[in-house]
């Protein structure tokens, strides 16, 4: 039943696909500042900002730097992981889900929450530093992506979400 509900919603309003993308910001409360969605090739599929007073780089440079940071942090956490005995070499590209991954980091001005799906979709949500665990809301955003973007017949994968 739930499956039918989801598919009928998309078929009723295929033009209104930006509308389901808006709730992530409102759903996570006033705390969400920036949201990035990358695919496994590093293409930025979606970028939203709600509160961003500081912009040091132009958008494409900013997206590249963010993807690069996540890529390096992934290999860093996979290598430094103190629990797993068998670790690969540092700098070798990892498959999605391979090695120990991180789910958030915190600085004095922001907190970055990260989730990677098995297909290599990366969701990044930047919030206020004192927000709690956002893993569930990232999962929720991923579900919205699956329901309203992947199941949309007019969407070609690997292109920015419109």
């Amino acid at each position: 039943m739930q499956f039918f509900g989801g598919s009928s919603l998309t078929s009723v309003a295929p033009e209104a696909s930006p509308a389901p993308a808006a709730p992530p910001g409102t759903g996570t409360g006033a705390n969400a500042q920036v949201l990035y969605v990358f695919n496994r090739n590093g293409v930025c599929l979606l970028y939203r900002e709600w509160h961003r007073p500081l912009r040091t780089l132009d958008p494409t440079q900013d997206h590249k730097l963010m993807f690069g940071l996540l890529f390096s942090l992934r290999s860093f956490t996979a290598k430094i992981d103190p629990i797993t005995a068998e670790k690969g070499n540092l700098g070798v590209p990892l498959l999605p889900g391979q090695g120990c991954s991180f789910y958030s980091f915190k600085t004095n001005t922001y907190k970055l929450n990260f989730m990677e799906s098995p297909s290599g979709i990366k969701l990044i949500l930047i919030t206020h530093p004192r927000t709690g665990d956002q893993r569930d809301s990232l999962k929720h955003i991923y579900n919205l992506y699956v329901e309203y973007v992947v199941k949309n017949p007019l969407y070609t994968s690997g292109t920015p979400i419109k």
């Binding site: 500042q33 920036v34 900002e49 509160h51 961003r52 007073p53 500081l54 942090l73 956490t77 992981d81 120990c100 991954s101 991180f102 789910y103 958030s104 980091f105 915190k106 600085t107 004095n108 001005t109 922001y110 930047i126």
Partner: peptide, 13 residues
């Protein structure tokens, strides 16, 4: 996104 950042304090894996 906000000025005055001093870098990562805590990384949670």
């Amino acid at each position: 996104p906000i000025p005055g950042c001093t870098g990562i304090d805590l990384l949670q894996a």
